[in-house]
Design a protein around this nucleic acid. Sequence first.
DNA 1: TCCGTGATGACACTGTGTGTCATCACGGAC
DNA 2: GTCCGTGATGACACACAGTGTCATCACGGA
Lengths: 196, 196
Amino acid sequence: MARWDPGAQERLTTAALDLYLEHGYENVTVADIAERAGLTRRSFFRYFPDKREVLFAGSERLPAVLREAVLGADPAAPPLAAVLDACDRLGTQLTEALGHDHVARRRAVIDSSAELQERERTKSAAVSAALDEALRERGTDPATATLVAQVASVAIGQAFRRWSESADASFTDGLHAVLDTLRAALADGDGRPPRA
Amino acid sequence: MARWDPGAQERLTTAALDLYLEHGYENVTVADIAERAGLTRRSFFRYFPDKREVLFAGSERLPAVLREAVLGADPAAPPLAAVLDACDRLGTQLTEALGHDHVARRRAVIDSSAELQERERTKSAAVSAALDEALRERGTDPATATLVAQVASVAIGQAFRRWSESADASFTDGLHAVLDTLRAALADGDGRPPRA
DNA sequence: TCCGTGATGACACTGTGTGTCATCACGGAC
DNA sequence: GTCCGTGATGACACACAGTGTCATCACGGA
């Protein structure tokens, strides 16, 4: 079992999630996680750069995937439409690959630790940066690209959270619902005519 | 000079900023900062909870101030208008109290460290949470409140960065410009009629 | 003058994250 | 079948963040 162990990383993630849920994130040491996974503390840091990252395994691929999806959208589509099109095509596929149970357990741990929420925001920022870059490559002017990317990242986060909390609505539907809400708030929101 | 030293906290912040700029955030230890400020490593942690927070001194008051400003806005105003009104009244006052030089130096340090960017996003999230809470107290429905708060937080961040990079435009003007951009992107952005 | 209070220094300790080296299993070369 | 390169791991050792605890010292008031 010691040598040739392709499941070591997965064992670390499950061990970490279990221990975090059982004793609380701050009361679990890296040595605890490694021990339950049958590894050494030093080896933990060969799979993950730090104690927080173990909860976000795989998330490093999302920015690149989203970037490609946006670049693959209709070149004539306006920025937000391109992002939404990319989310429509990837959203269900991504959410289905995760599983509600695992997501819910992760959610509970993250919501209990400021440190983990900080890291989660970093992941969201990485998504935003990827969208930003993809939009610029499509020719969107930089200011609009950055803004649309950040707002889309907020909407994605909101929709994802709604999906994870109640499994009845699809991620894509939630995303469009969030944007409808935003549209309404923006339309009557600043006391100035919509077409200034 | 040792006893009765009201300027200890400020000495720590300036020492930290100087050292971070001179040697890079990661190459500066808390002991270095404390020494330059004429204090002990242990005393540093009596003024700041950690090494990052020293760059954000005073920011803990912003959420409460914004909250009060939103609650003080016209009760009949729609959510986003209330937030913008609050920002209009506070924005210039806040930016003037900071000073371009200090903000620019801080910006350079933060942009050079992922750890500090993470903390900055946490500060932004605190602003968003305060806006969210204030809007709910005004009677805004929770979904709209959270969304408007997060989007406003993004807009504030964008406007603040623009202001800090070029001193020619006011913070308030930048904020409205950002929202105009967003309005335009949202209007033609999803390929669906604005009034679905 | 004495004492309570609050800020500080000194010290010890846990835990994260990193560098370095020895070791061991595996697969391929011969 | 034996030998060797490679890669993953364990075993230290270390710097540093952050925390608890206690002694000390200056200050202001009784």
